[in-house]
């Protein structure tokens, strides 16, 4: 834990991190400002909270993760402390795992702060009504055939999935950062990798031929962007999108993301060791 604190100390010394925080807070406030005209409809408020991740949370988390994590892997090299740290008895392993641990905590903080802030904003004045009401009462969801789930349960589930997706991105940023060793290049690559699925889901790529559209859909659904928007969790019994009974099939995308994270970590570890061998 102490080593993770050292990583936090490094993280807060990056000037761009503070700029990202300031802009992130501005964005969060503007997103809540956009929803300021609450009508008093409780179920609508629940819907808004559930959808907030798709509309704002994904963008916000992407921004904070890419900016905040792009330097963490190359910082030792940048400050020329790598040769010292990596030649200490357990420096290599400890440094790696403290970075991994810090990344997990950082992703969790983003998700929790976002979730709690938007939750309080939506329900602070509504008195947290309908917390344990069934989601089936919602006119916004087609949940026929779903296991019974409450409003709060659904929200927590969505935020857990969101956390998993943010981790997927976080370790990818670390992986690319380890490869490029340049924060700006990492920001560009990861930013572009996020824009593609967002453009696919928001704008649609109707102009593409069927085959190319299938490729675009595949990329979008497998990428962290698709998962961060929670679109890619809607797997049916087959590959096709399916909003009915998607909770029953949730283990499939979760397995996919967990596998992706493990692959990322394995590659990161291999790169880290390669650096040490050099």
């Amino acid at each position: 834990m102490r080593h993770i604190l050292y990583e936090i100390k490094k993280h807060v010394s990056f000037r761009e991190t503070w700029v990202a925080y300031a802009l992130g807070i501005g964005y969060l406030i503007s997103s809540m400002w956009n929803y300021r005209d609450l009508t008093g409809n409780v179920q609508q408020a629940w819907y808004r909270w559930h959808q907030h991740i798709w509309l704002y949370g994904a963008n916000l988390a992407m921004f904070l993760v890419i900016i905040g994590m792009s330097r963490i892997m190359s910082y030792e090299r940048e400050r020329r402390t790598d040769s010292v740290l990596l030649t200490t008895a357990r420096g290599r392993n400890k440094l790696f795992f403290s970075k991994i641990g810090f990344a997990a905590i950082y992703a969790a903080v983003i998700v929790v702060v976002f979730g709690v802030t938007t939750f309080v904003h939506q329900f602070g004045i509504l008195g947290f009504e309908g917390v344990f009401d069934s989601l089936k009462g919602s006119i916004y969801f087609r949940v026929d055939g779903e296991a019974s789930i409450t409003n709060i349960g659904f929200g927590v589930l969505r935020h857990c999935l969101f956390y998993l997706s943010v981790l997927y991105l976080t370790y990818l940023v670390m992986l690319i950062s380890q490869l490029t060793k340049r924060p700006v290049v990492t920001i560009c690559i990861c930013g572009a990798a996020y824009v593609f699925p967002v453009a696919y889901y928001v704008l649609g790529f109707d102009f593409l031929s069927d085959r190319l559209e299938a490729v675009a859909e595949f990329i979008s659904r497998c990428s962290f962007g698709g998962f961060m928007m929670l679109e890619s969790y809607s797997w049916g019994r087959t590959w096709d999108f399916c909003y009915d009974d998607w909770i029953g099939n949730l283990w499939k995308p979760i397995l996919f993301v967990v596998t992706a994270i493990l692959v990322e970590l394995t590659l990161l570890w291999a790169l880290w060791r390669r650096k040490e061998r050099k």
Partner: peptide, 17 residues
């Protein structure tokens, strides 16, 4: 700010917004 990533954030974020 004498920091390239920070400048990208400050200028890029409102631009994209």
């Amino acid at each position: 700010v004498a920091n390239h990533p920070a400048a990208i954030c400050i200028c890029g974020f409102p631009y994209v917004f």
